[in-house]
Write a protein that binds this DNA or RNA. Structure first.
Length: 907
DNA sequence: CGCAAATCGTA
DNA sequence: GTACGATTTGCGT
């Protein structure tokens, strides 16, 4: 008989899971409205633990109400904690009831926090030779890890032993307490070292090993952060004490006395019924009522069993095709050789019609020894009618990508009915990233196979055609399956809010094929003028570099802020105007601008920097992005990235092509139209201020726009109390800054810095502005209040932006959220409007002017088209008309279109 | 090779 | 003061 190792004791930090489940999982209630999301999260986690650690004793520990020894040490302990949300509080008692019914020991020790109970029990167990697993979502617990104690985060399935702690934090478990003391904790109100975050804390601890030693050498730390450390010396020992989990609490029982009882199945069934956990009810009301549970692999009780096929034969293909043709809606995903659609080829496709059942159709896996697969081109030909049919409705995750890839194979994907990425984005643009892995975890509670898991990473990463079919099938079929299930989870949530459904249905979904076509078209760029420009920039930069080295008296890298800091502030002793967020003296543009009044070197640096930026970002790079296939540049527009509803653009980012300087405009001159065509650039004039006028209904603002006045001039006249034609250029400039500041949720401080005037003067401008435009002030107050009350703000179309930080304890964070609250409705409404315009314009051009004009770019408030010269008048007129009509506001939406041989001229 | 910070381009 | 993406450096792996 071999010696069997005793199974570990599993100590569960119930309180940490309570909060994690509450925040991580979608809100869920019973039909009567009792919240149950946190209950379900915690209980499924416990059930999972029981399965994962068969034979282990599972002990559940919760915090008790009331004060603990830490409050005695420090009366401000946890003073910043917000009260527990009501819909969380009511879930605690049910959790306790269910845990008891499950027969698990439940420890709630008065005056002792769960952490300390766990620390004490863990220490006791290890001293008796029993290993311990602590299940928690709280990283502070890492201090308890040892050779016999590991942590497991059940929600993310990441276990952490000693090496894991070192890997995650960069320091050992015994250094965690010091780390926590240095970083501090705003929620628990534990003061740390100002501006010392995880990076700095780890760096110090790696160098000085522990807090005592670091404090002894505090005078060795330079910079502002060193001062901060020295300022903190007095309270650091207390912080460390507060962060230390106790392992010596006087409990009046021992670990071996804490033992499980048999499950009370009747009681459990009753509770599951009460809280409407369907799959668990089924389990407990089953025929024999015994304990042999379905192995449930995740916290969602709707997780179906998986049956994934791989399609190798004609028969299988026919079978699936038949069923896809019958389906009301099917999920679909392509696997390709590249993330860049412009160079991606199809490797395989996956499909799902009902949850849990999916198939992968491999077509081009070509690694050594790959099984025979159906012929790609012949099979795509067979799929073509289905994929090109608008009657066969498809759901996918970012179908724009699939549409672009299929286009490379001569297939025009139609019937794009639903997109899970956009569903999630419209539901809550900031709750999560909108990639499939994140969505699966958040909305289904499932961890999916990541591409890295099967393809590796870095330079050695495989492309999908090189991946073993067994793994590829599992991965690809899961994609289609999860997509379908995500859709089933998300679509009802959208439908529950009529306005959000409209935003999804009428704005974001119709835009998908429009963007797809713009991306596929690409834009024409004159590579030779850009290369010529690069040459000239290089020559000028060489001159500047030489001059700078002479000025500094030594050679250095002009591109390195760090080396610049050394030369400016250490060697030349220039005054420090401003510091970076990390406390280093800044060498940012406005600072150099300031120093340039007095010194030659910053002037040289400034010019060198701006040229270097232009060269590396644009003149060198843009020619490299020209597709050899089309001779044009194909950006990617991202529809689910920004918080406000705007698009973003990458590879290349076409939304930050220079315009302000002459050198910059030369880059715009390289964006050209083909022979016989011109570029037309049409932009909305002052769209955000007009939206502000509409939303606020302010009389003065509305009148100014109705009369078609120069709005900055009109504002200047109001604020400075003069007539419109007496306004100086300086006054107009100030008014313009005020108007922009308004859109950004300005403060007097910000405005004063912008205008380089005293703060009091800036405040005076703002006061006078609000006096003259009282409707704007009222609107701002209304928005702030709405943000605080509802936790979100919305655009005119009803697109929401959630602001979780709006009621933060930290005043700075709260104010930042308020500025976002002010800005988002304007920025977001403008985004909604241009999105609608794009759909209308594309439809119009496709149906009436297919050979004469096409959209090639969007830059937030501007559309750029290629237009045949013979059609210029018609198109410009029709374009302005449609863009203006994209929204019906209380003020006219003015659109200004320009024509030119290149983008600069058209602007 | 991967990541964070600093910087700078746009609306 | 809002919203983004790309590049470079510097550092640690």
């Amino acid at each position: 008989m071999s010696q069997q190792k005793t199974p570990p004791v599993v100590l569960v930090d119930g309180s940490s899971y309570l909060f994690r489940a509450y925040h991580a999982l979608p809100p869920l209630t019973t039909s009567k409205g009792h919240p149950t999301g946190a209950i379900k999260g915690v209980i499924s986690m416990l059930r999972r633990l029981e399965q994962d650690y068969p034979g282990s004793r599972v002990v559940v520990v919760f915090d008790a109400k009331g004060k603990t020894f830490r409050h005695d040490l420090y009366d401000q302990y946890k003073a910043n904690r917000p009260p527990m949300p009501e819909d969380l509080g009511v879930q605690i008692a049910p959790i306790h009831e269910i845990v008891r019914a499950m027969g698990l020991p439940l420890l709630i020790i008065p005056d002792v926090e769960a952490d300390d109970v766990i620390g004490t029990l863990a220490t006791e167990a290890t001293s008796k030779g029993v290993d311990v697993v602590i299940s928690t979502g709280d990283k502070d617990m890492a201090q308890l890890v040892s050779d016999h104690v590991t942590l497991i985060n059940t929600m993310t399935e990441i276990p952490m032993d000693r090496d894991g702690v070192v890997e995650k934090f960069g320091i050992g478990p015994e250094q965690i307490v010091d780390y926590l003391a240095l970083v501090g904790d705003t929620v628990d109100n534990i003061p740390g070292v100002t501006k010392c975050g995880p990076k700095t804390a780890v760096k110090w601890l790696q160098q000085y090993h522990d807090l005592d030693n670091l404090m002894a050498h505090a005078d060795e730390i330079g910079g502002k952060i060193g001062d901060n450390l020295r300022d903190a010396l007095d309270h650091l020992p207390l912080s460390r004490q507060l962060a230390t989990i106790r392992t010596d609490v006087d409990l009046d029982f021992g670990i071996e006395e804490v033992s499980p009882e048999p499950e009370d199945e009747e009681q459990l069934l009753e509770l599951f019924k009460e809280y409407e956990f369907k799959s668990w009810i089924a389990e407990y009301s089953g025929d024999n009522g015994s304990n042999d549970r379905q192995p449930s692999h995740n916290p969602a009780d709707s997780s179906p069993e998986r049956q994934y096929d791989t399609i190798f034969t004609e028969e299988q293909l026919n079978d699936w095709l038949g069923r896809l043709e019958q389906a009301d809606l099917f999920a679909f995903d392509t696997e390709t050789t590249s993330l860049r659609y412009s160079e991606a080829d199809i490797v395989g496709m996956s499909f799902a019609i009902e949850p849990g059942k999916a198939a992968y159709l491999p077509l081009a896996h070509d690694y050594m020894g790959a099984p025979d697969q159906l012929n790609r081109d012949a099979t795509l030909k067979r799929l073509k009618p289905l994929l090109e049919s608008t009657d066969h409705r498809k759901v996918g995750q970012n179908l724009k990508y699939d549409k672009n890839v299929l286009a490379n194979h001569g297939i025009s994907l139609e019937g794009i009915a639903e997109d899970t990425m956009l569903e999630s984005y419209v539901l809550n643009s900031t709750a999560t990233r909108h990639d499939m892995g994140s969505l699966a975890l958040k909305y289904l509670g499932e961890k999916t196979i990541s591409f890295q898991d099967i393809a590796g990473k870095g330079a050695k990463q495989l492309t999908f055609n090189q991946i073993d079919l067994e793994q590829a099938s599992e991965y690809a079929a899961e994609d289609a399956d999860i997509t379908l299930r995500l859709h089933q989870a998300l679509r009802p949530q959208l439908a529950a809010t009529g306005q959000l459904e409209t935003v999804y249905q009428d704005i974001d979904m119709p835009l998908v094929p429009v963007l797809s076509r713009i991306e596929q078209r690409g834009v024409m760029i004159n590579a030779s003028t850009l290369k010529q420009h690069s040459q000239e920039l290089a020559e000028r930069m060489a001159e500047l570099e030489k001059a700078a080295h002479e000025e500094a008296g030594e050679a250095f890298n002009l591109g390195s802020p760090k080396q610049l800091q050394a030369i400016f502030y250490d060697k030349m002793g220039l005054p420090v105007v401003k510091k970076t967020p990390k406390g280093a003296p800044s060498t940012a543009e406005p600072v150099l601008q300031e120093l340039a009044h007095e010194h030659q070197l910053p002037r040289l640096i400034l010019e060198h920097r701006s040229l270097s930026k232009l060269k590396s970002t644009y003149t060198d790079t843009l020619p490299e992005l020209i597709s050899p296939r089309t001779g044009r540049v194909h950006t990617s527009y991202h529809q689910a990235v920004t918080a406000t509803g705007r698009l973003s653009s990458s590879e290349p980012n076409l939304q930050n092509i220079p315009v302000r300087t002459e050198q910059g405009r030369r880059i715009r001159q390289a964006f050209v139209a083909p022979e016989g065509y011109k570029l037309v650039a049409a932009d909305y004039s002052q769209i955000e201020l007009r939206i502000m006028a509409h939303l606020s209904g302010d009389k003065g603002l509305l009148t100014a726009f109705e009369k078609g006045e120069d709005i900055h001039r009109a504002t200047a006249a109001e604020v400075f109390g003069t007539s419109v034609d007496e306004i100086t250029s300086d006054q107009r400039r100030s008014a313009k800054a005020i108007n922009f500041g308004l859109i950004y949720g300005m403060s007097a401080f910000g405005l004063s810095r912008q205008l380089e005037v005293e703060r009091k003067v800036a405040q005076d401008y703002i006061d006078r502005y609000f006096q003259r435009y009282p409707g704007v002030l009222a609107y701002m107050d209304r928005i702030r209040k709405q943000a605080h009350d509802d936790g979100y703000v919305e655009t005119l179309a009803g697109r929401r932006l959630y602001l979780p930080e709006i009621n933060a304890r930290n005043k700075q964070m709260q104010q930042a959220a308020e500025r976002t609250a002010i800005n988002a409705p304007m920025q977001g409404t403008a985004a909604d409007i241009i999105k609608r315009a794009m759909v209308t314009v594309e439809d119009w051009l496709q149906s009436e002017h297919a050979d004469e004009a096409r959209m090639v770019m969007q830059v937030h408030d501007e559309l750029i088209l290629e237009v045949r010269e013979s059609a210029l008048d018609t198109i410009c007129h029709g374009l302005e008309k449609r863009m203006s009509a994209a929204a019906d506001l209380k003020v006219p939406l003015l659109v200004e279109a320009g024509v030119g041989d290149n983008w600069d001229e058209a602007h």
